[in-house]
């Protein structure tokens, strides 16, 4: 139970162990811990950054989609307008053509009518002449009678 030289032996041993721990155990572990701490901090920072980027991307996506929707609406509107224009134009053209055709037909029929009337008058005139010739026999001068009939006809016409 008494104190003896063991005391100093133990003090030396103790010093050796403290020195060993201080030199070979403590530093590598604390260094590793600090490095890991830094890594974790960096990891958290990266995760935050990624989250921010994701939000930005989402925002961008929404924007692009809404833009596309607008564009589509515009395109549809334009197509509708164009279709309406085409229809209106076609209607116009058809109307014009219809008018033309009607005008042409009218003109044609008038020309025909005129021709028919002229030939009819000619025939009537010839008929009248031949009739008169028959009535008057050959006594009458055909030339004089012709002039007379022409004058009569022009009076008729006017």
């Amino acid at each position: 139970m008494n104190i003896n030289a063991t005391l100093f032996g133990q003090m030396i041993t103790f010093a050796i162990f403290v020195w060993f721990t201080l030199k070979y155990v403590w530093p590598p572990i604390t260094q590793a811990l600090e490095e890991r701490q830094a890594k974790i901090a960096e990891g958290i920072k990266d995760a935050e950054k990624a989250e921010r980027t994701r939000l930005e991307a989402q925002h961008e996506k929404d924007q692009i989609i809404s833009e596309a929707r607008n564009t589509a609406k515009e395109v549809i509107q334009e197509a509708k307008n164009q279709a309406n224009n085409l229809i209106a134009e076609a209607k116009n053209t058809a109307l014009k053509q219809h008018d033309n055709i009607v005008a042409l037909a009218t003109k044609e029929s008038q020309t025909q009518l005129e021709k028919a009337r002229k030939s009819l008058i000619q025939e009537i005139a010839s008929f009248a002449i031949s009739g008169s010739e028959k009535i008057l026999k050959t006594k009458l001068d055909e030339k004089e009678n012709r002039i007379l009939v022409d004058r009569m006809m022009s009076e008729e016409q006017s």
Binding site: F20, V25, W26, P28, I29, Q31, A32
Partner: peptide
């Protein structure tokens, strides 16, 4: 020491 020698972060 064994635990600390190859300490990794």
């Amino acid at each position: 020491r064994k635990g600390a020698r190859r300490a990794t972060s």
